[in-house]
Simulated scan of single mutants.
Amino acid sequence: MFLALLPSFSLPAALPLIAAEWGMGPAQSGIVMAAFQAGYIVAALVALPLTDRFDTRYVIAGGSSLTAAGHLLFPILSTDPVTGIILRAVAGAGLGCIYMPGIRLVSEVTVTMRGRAVGGYVFSYLMGTAASFALTGMLLGFFEWRTAYLFVALAGTLAFPLALFVICHPVFKRGVSANPFVTLSPSRKRFHRESVRLHLPVMLLIGAYMVHMWELYGLRSWMSPFLADALGQTGMAAVSLAATLTAFSVVLSGVSALVAGWLSDRMGRVATASVIMAVSAACSLTFGWLFNAPLWSLLLVGLVLSLTVASDSPVFSAGITEMSDPRILGRVMAWQTFLGYGAATVSPAVMGYIMERSADEALGWGLAFSSLGLVALTGPLFLMRLRRLPESRRLCGGRG
């Protein structure tokens, strides 16, 4: 997961340089960035249902080769927004065959400490994101953006041989997800009745996950350009510094994801995610308005936002695997991916549109980040509704 993610955020890290070369405004830049999520969604909608019928490991191996190809070709062949959109969509499609199928694989081989196990997997995802920003930012200090992107993409190709190792290793041999709160029905009629009964709580969890993804990917896509502007510097040095700071923020979110997964195994999924989402929403509502504020206040709010915005990822992913019938888990995760990454696809484009329509730069940043916070505030509402349902006891061994 870490290696596959290495080139994924090289585009946001180098966005000011690419936008200047291709003559893109904020709205068009947001669309190019959103293409990655769009490709992810399309591929995941195909790949995840396949994991109900075929070995998940082979899906992951295929995705590793596809995302490597998309990233390698981007700095070589992309010359304008259209070619950029196509190649980023291919790279995103490959990741769509890796990330959520990987969560399923981890869930199938871990039961008693699922929150911590999924938290560790999400940690590798976030460390890959951080390394993508950091490595790209470092290389931009020495090379033009195409060379920097290509070097990072070459490092990412190492994910494919590791995927082959996973295929061969007996630890990852597919087993049945053992959730004592979701029993397997002997009859098709009873199976459908249980699926209908689980529909509302699962959709409430997915609704909260959508909100989480809207905020997370809006922040991930625009944080580096925002910091480059807010620091008041110009040129390659500003882009490199902003990418490095963004990488540091992702490292913090990776550590907090590990802690959140551990806490949710003890305090319950709903309580843990509700607190995290409320804090991150408050920070998003504030962050953009600090564009011209003292640097210490910008960094302080950014620190808290970094610690919270991604830390509920393992909580939602573990919760959905617990709430769903194992026989249709792939299809449930396909819906989770479609709706969650659908929100992630729209969010960066909406932020770009808001900034382009704003009267000045500071106002645009404030309104754009506030849009993330307003959406994020609805997340705890989904979870409060879920908490009142008896099915919430299926989560975390009865803790909810």
Rank of each mutant, 00 (worst) to 15 (best):
R266K: 14
M113H: 14
S177E: 03
S253Y: 05
G62L: 14
A318S: 15
P12Q: 08
S195Y: 01
M203L: 15
L139A: 12
I76Q: 10
M351L: 12
P380V: 07
L367A: 09
L105H: 05
E108Q: 15
V211S: 07
L374W: 14
T67R: 02
W214M: 02
A14C: 04
T51N: 05
T234I: 09
G398H: 14
L135S: 00
R266Q: 10
P225T: 07
F191G: 10
M127D: 02
R388V: 00
A271M: 12
V32P: 04
Y209F: 15
P201M: 01
V32G: 07
F160L: 14
H199A: 15
S240M: 11
R357H: 13
L3R: 01
A178Y: 08
F287G: 01
M24V: 08
A376P: 01
S187P: 08
L6G: 06
L290G: 07
T56M: 01
L395D: 01
S313L: 12
L241M: 10
L150G: 00
Y125G: 05
V176C: 00
V346M: 13
G379M: 07
S124K: 04
L383G: 01
S10Y: 06
I328D: 10
G102I: 08
I98V: 14
A237L: 13
R190W: 07
P348L: 04
S264L: 06
W145K: 02
C396T: 13
G218E: 06
G340N: 10
A131K: 06
L307P: 02
R116F: 11
H169K: 14
A334D: 11
V315C: 05
G261D: 08
Y341N: 12
L241D: 04
T67E: 12
M210V: 07
D80F: 09
S8Y: 14
A155F: 13
V171P: 00
S124T: 15
S221G: 12
S240R: 06
M100W: 01
L87Q: 12
R88P: 11
V109N: 05
A243V: 08
W145R: 02
L231Y: 12
F172R: 08
L77E: 03
L95M: 14
I320F: 05
L227V: 10
R385N: 00
F151N: 02
P294H: 09
F338M: 15
F151S: 03
V176E: 09
L245A: 01
T321V: 14
L200K: 12
A89F: 08
V42L: 15
G62Q: 09
M127F: 13
L252D: 00
A278S: 15
R394D: 01
S253R: 09
F248S: 05
T136K: 02
S256Y: 03
P170E: 09
S124G: 13
V176D: 09
S392E: 06
M33R: 01
R266H: 15
A368W: 04
E108V: 03
T51I: 12
M277A: 13
R385H: 04
A4W: 03
A362R: 13
A343I: 03
A159W: 01
T136A: 00
I98Q: 00
A257I: 07
L164N: 11
F160H: 07
S284V: 04
R269A: 03
F291R: 03
H169L: 05
G156A: 11
H199L: 15
G400N: 13
A20E: 15
L6Q: 07
V346S: 04
V46H: 01
M355R: 15
E21S: 11
